[in-house]
Design a protein around this nucleic acid. Structure first.
Lengths: 310, 310
DNA sequence: ATTCTTCATCAGAAATTCTTATCCAACCGA
DNA sequence: TCGGTTGGATAAGAATTTCTGATGAAGAAT
């Protein structure tokens, strides 16, 4: 026999409500014969009568009543599908899976997540913090919607937009505070503490010291910037950290910060996503939110703690 | 724009499941362009992309996933409408999709299907043979009407009725026929052939040997009882099989059967279905048919081949 | 008996949904 | 880098579905 269609159900519902073929047909904006036929077809499909046609009125059968209840639920669910789609149309809704590299995440995310969820209420934001190659992999496989990493990434299937540039600063023990800032070359002679392999920031720092193949004289791997700074505080060596990490990481360590001169080491942070992503437009908007968040952080650093927090 | 139809939703569901236009179209028994068009139309109607089409794969968007969940509910409800109608004309007609675990199916089904289709003439019986977790999943999703599995299943949303208990017997090489029957403990010292992981019967057999954590000394996985018995015949080890499998599986192998003493290993076979299934009443009747079929088999085993088949 | 109301039926028109054929882009192995 | 292959999109016409307007039939009201 024929298939059940939503049309059948909609017509059925109208007829059940009006108890009158003509008026129900009007309500459905079709002719009365059309309705008759569809109802008949529905009953044949089901193999059971839904209505009892007396001369005076059209009444639901016992089975029809049970059927009607379920149909109402279904139609409501279907209509909600439409609402859902309409709601999600221009405003970003649902789930946003965002990846961030570890040398950015702790500093940028608090501000950024705040801004983002203020802007897109009800958005389910999920953060993944790991190194760039893993982020790229998960992005490719569709397990992430976007990622914040150091550019360039150079994946032809990815869109990439720059967010901001970020200088690297030198972290030394407090005792060295008044010594001259070493050059990239002299840095090579010092005990340089770096993140373990896999972190792009490690490579960026090494590249500044112009050591590609051979690492500096002595080198010690830490698994987070926080660890590195604490070790510097303990007098074990020096390290580089991105500017953005300064407020958080140097708060509780006996270290001093110095900027390099002339060829400032720096990197560009950007956002990437699959060119084919249907969220492309929204992601472009979101990149603005990231930029703003970064600006806010930068400003806060320039005039720190005018209003000290509780 | 156009209206949402069930056809749209059905096609959408198929595409979501297969992640491939061609295969989904096959599953819907239409051509690939027809599917493409309907999906496109659906997306236009909703005003949002549901799928992300990359060269390699077709993937649900975030919104698509949310949509898919709701659609599944709706489709299940709609299918249940049909079931409801069928059930209402108290005799079962139409389609019955029944799942059976592999360690039961080959022995029980021939008899059962015969009995069932004799009783319900014109019933379209569809059998699915796979392991319990998959059956449960498909039952939940409304892709099966009922399943025959080992109890308990303990899904609160399922009805479960016991059908019969089934002893496990030991299968040994013919040469061992006169040796004493090993206990569960000594069994552990022998080379025990078992079904591969995922089969509930494997776990039931292991549980009898009281090995939960550590498996027996040597263990070899086979993918069907038939394989296991053949391997026993070849002298590779011993195995357990359910009583019901004995006539079929030991017909063509040089093996002997032994029953265990005292604490006979056994399991309970039962039937399960969704509590909300409108077929509930009919399924209860059908469970009687299964029981009868099992009894018939058991009787046939006691007095084998009085009338030998042609 | 006649007329009205209401639903069913029919035939042809309109709209839709499908199929086949073809295209095009991305990928893959050589 | 080049053909071959895969997988989805597009187009045109065929098949099917769904609708309308005309008409029929049956019970109720006058």
């Amino acid at each position: 026999m024929k298939n059940l269609t939503l049309k059948h159900l909609r017509y059925f519902e109208a007829l059940a409500r009006h108890g009158h073929f003509g008026r129900a047909a009007d309500a459905c904006a079709i002719s009365q014969p059309a309705l008759s036929m569809q109802i008949k077809e529905l009953e044949e499909t089901l193999g059971t009568a839904l209505f009892e046609r007396t001369a005076r009125q059209v009444r639901l059968t016992g089975f029809g009543e049970e059927f009607a209840e379920r149909v109402q639920d279904i139609l409501r669910s279907v209509d909600e599908l439409g609402d859902l789609a309409r709601a999600s149309c221009d405003r970003l809704v649902g789930r946003l899976r965002i990846g961030v590299i570890p040398t950015i995440a702790p500093y940028l995310l608090p501000t950024f997540i705040g801004n983002l969820s203020r802007l897109y209420d009800g958005l389910d934001i999920r953060v993944r913090e790991t190194v760039t190659p893993k982020l790229i992999h998960e992005l490719t496989e569709g397990r992430l919607d976007t990622a914040i990493v150091a550019l360039p990434v150079s994946e032809p299937s990815f869109e990439e937009v720059a967010l901001f540039a970020e200088d690297f600063v030198l972290v030394r023990p407090d005792s060295d505070a008044n010594k001259p800032v070493p050059s990239a070359e002299t840095l090579r002679e010092m005990r340089l503490l770096l993140l373990e392999e896999g972190h792009c920031f490690r490579d960026q720092a090494l590249s500044f010291c112009k050591v590609h193949a051979a690492p500096p004289r002595e080198l010690l791997d830490g698994s987070s910037l926080s660890t590195l700074v604490q070790m510097v505080g303990a007098g074990i060596g020096v390290t580089l950290i991105p500017e953005m990490a300064v407020p958080v990481e140097t708060r509780s360590a006996a270290v001093s910060i110095a900027r390099f001169s002339a060829p400032q080491p720096r990197r560009t942070i950007g956002m990437i996503w699959r060119k084919s992503s249907p969220l492309a437009d929204q992601l472009m908007q979101i990149s603005d939110v990231v930029r703003q968040s970064a600006d806010t952080l930068r400003a806060a650093r320039k005039e720190p703690m005018i209003n000290s927090p509780v």
